[in-house]
Structures are given as C-alpha cells and as structure tokens.
Amino acid sequence: MPGRRRAVVAGALLGVSIATGLTAAGCADEGAGTGPDQTALPDGLTAFVDQSRVQRQGRTVFVRLINDTGQRVTVTQAVVGSPRFPERTWTGEKSFVNEADLEFELPPGRCGRGSDATVRLTYRLDDGPERVSTTTARDRYGAIGLFLARDCAEATLAEAADVEVGEPSVTGRGRGAVFELPVRFVPTGERADVAFAGFEDTVLFRNAPRSPTAGGEPVPVTGEPVRVVLRLVPARCDPHALAEDKVGTLVGVRVDAPELPPGSSYYLPLGEPDRSALRGFFAVHCGL
C-alpha cells in the first residue's frame, strides 16, 4: 500500500507553535527568573484541564480558569505540564471576570497514573502588578485521562507493530452495503506480548459481521504481518446524527498488553479522505 503508511505516535506535535501563542516550554523559559516572584493563587481563582467534544478529532485541549475573586483577571502566560506530558506554554493576553479557556495542543502522553496538570500562571488582578502563581488544574471530567490512556495504548502498540491503513471500498448495495477498510499490523520484532483486540463501534457506525470486534479473541502482532478488515455499517439512519456528528468517525482500536488495563484502545489513524468516505457512505447507505 504505497504512500498509505501511518505513523502511530504523533511525535510531530512536539515543539509545534500555534496561533494562540503555544510554544515548547524550553523556548518559553528563556529569561526565566527575571519576572515577579511566586505568590499564592488568590481565593476564588481555580483551574481545570479539559477537552471540548467538538475537538475530539484533534489534540486541542484547554485550561479553564474560573474566576470568583470579584476582580478582573488578566492572564498573559500559562505553563502547563504533568508527569504524563511535557510542558507547553500559552502566551497572549486574556482578560475576564467569569471564566476563560487557554487552548494548547496536548503533546503525546506517557503511560502512568493521574491526569491532573500543574499550571504556572502569570496574571494581574484588576490594574494591579503582575503576579505568578502555581496551581493544580484538575481533570474534573476525565477527558484528559482518557486522552492519555489512548496515547499509552497507541505507544504500546507502536512498540510491537507499525500500522498501515489501506484504501476504503464499499461492497454490496443499498441497505446491504458495507464499508470496508483494510488494516495491516506489521510487527517490529521489539515485543511479542502485544495483541490487537478488535475494533470498537462509534456513535454513527457499528461493526458488520466478519469485522474483528472489540471483545473478540486477541490476535498477537508478532511474526508475519497481521491483516484485518474493518467492516462498518451505520448504527442508525438519522440525518441529524450525521449533520451534527463530531466523533462518529473515531474508530477505537483495542490493544491488549500486560501493562494495559482491560479495554485499552486508541483511535485508528484515519485521514480526512477516509472520514469523508465514511460520511459519504453513511448518506448513500441510508438514502439521505
């Protein structure tokens, strides 16, 4: 499948700069120690880390600041990191009296426990002097924890095999049509204790017969390349579900390994052409 090889770990995200002022922490720390001294975070200012549902296809997450101080808060920098992912720095100027979101691209995460982050804020209260405070940003809804768990499953599989996604096709007609996508796991020879454990359903699609579904017998990715075919049909023919969908083309790949919790998975690396083909198939299959 020339030209269709997909890297499993999105390492290219490291060190990326985006329009919101995101930089790799190493660059942002130049001149550290010349700013204001650390001070306690004021009562009423709290931080959380989260990801919006509409951003699930990418790696954009955010620090949400909740302001109950009774004063206007102006943030000019936020350095975010944890034992599970490298630091990233948001810079800009955001002034708010209620709440504000500081977006950043989450770098590939590491396996481990816990999903809260540490945030070092540079900010002002009303027209006061610049202050720096460090606080814990809780992952209150578990979205970052799920993200990091997927990264862990993806990295574990990457140790054992490279993943190749082939060209999509459709077999059958009308309501009997099935979307097929060939997937190959090419063993690296580095590990023999990792297995592919099936594909998960999505809110838009379910696995058709003869698709290796989640919960099936794990297939070790060792020795010769393992070839499977993802076979999908719409889970329901609802035009509103298709029109409003944000996550229906995120197909989970179950990964089985000694260090992973049962049911660990990550999203099959599909490009926009594949996602468009899936949405087009949904519309044709359902006669929309």
Rank of each mutant, 00 (worst) to 15 (best):
P220G: 07
L148C: 00
P182L: 09
A10Y: 09
L22T: 10
S264W: 00
D201F: 06
V178K: 07
T118Y: 15
L121S: 03
E224V: 14
R120I: 15
V247G: 12
A161V: 09
V186I: 06
F179I: 02
G166V: 09
S211G: 15
L268V: 04
S169W: 06
A25P: 11
R59W: 13
V16E: 07
R210W: 02
G142D: 05
T122A: 06
G166K: 09
G223M: 04
D201H: 15
L250H: 00
D29H: 13
A235D: 08
A10H: 09
G114D: 02
D29W: 13
R4D: 13
L270N: 03
R236H: 08
E272V: 11
F104K: 05
T23D: 08
V73G: 01
V226I: 09
A192W: 04
R124L: 08
A195Q: 10
A10R: 03
V170W: 10
I66P: 03
A117P: 01
T118P: 06
E190R: 10
R4V: 13
V54E: 15
D126W: 12
C111L: 05
A137R: 02
E244C: 06
G198Y: 05
C286E: 09
R110Q: 08
Q77V: 04
V183I: 13
T213H: 11
V183H: 07
C152M: 00
L146F: 01
P225A: 08
G35D: 09
C237Y: 06
D116R: 03
R124S: 11
F104H: 12
D116H: 01
F179L: 05
S211R: 02
L148K: 00
D50H: 14
L14M: 06
D116P: 04
L204Y: 01
G172T: 02
E87V: 11
A283V: 11
V165K: 08
R191E: 07
R236D: 13
T23H: 06
V75N: 01
D126T: 03
H240W: 08
V186F: 09
G215L: 08
E272T: 09
F196K: 10
P239E: 01
R206Y: 10
G114K: 10
G263C: 12
V119R: 05
R124Y: 03
R4K: 07
F179G: 08
F199K: 02
N207S: 14
Y267S: 13
E93G: 14
L230R: 03
D245T: 02
V226L: 03
A283K: 00
V8Y: 00
L270E: 02
L278V: 04
V183A: 00
L204C: 07
Q38T: 14
V80E: 05
F281K: 00
D162Q: 08
R72L: 13
A149C: 01
E164N: 14
S133A: 11
A195Y: 10
A214K: 08
L125W: 09
G21H: 07
L250D: 05
T136G: 14
G70T: 01
L65T: 00
R173C: 01
A40Q: 12
G166L: 14
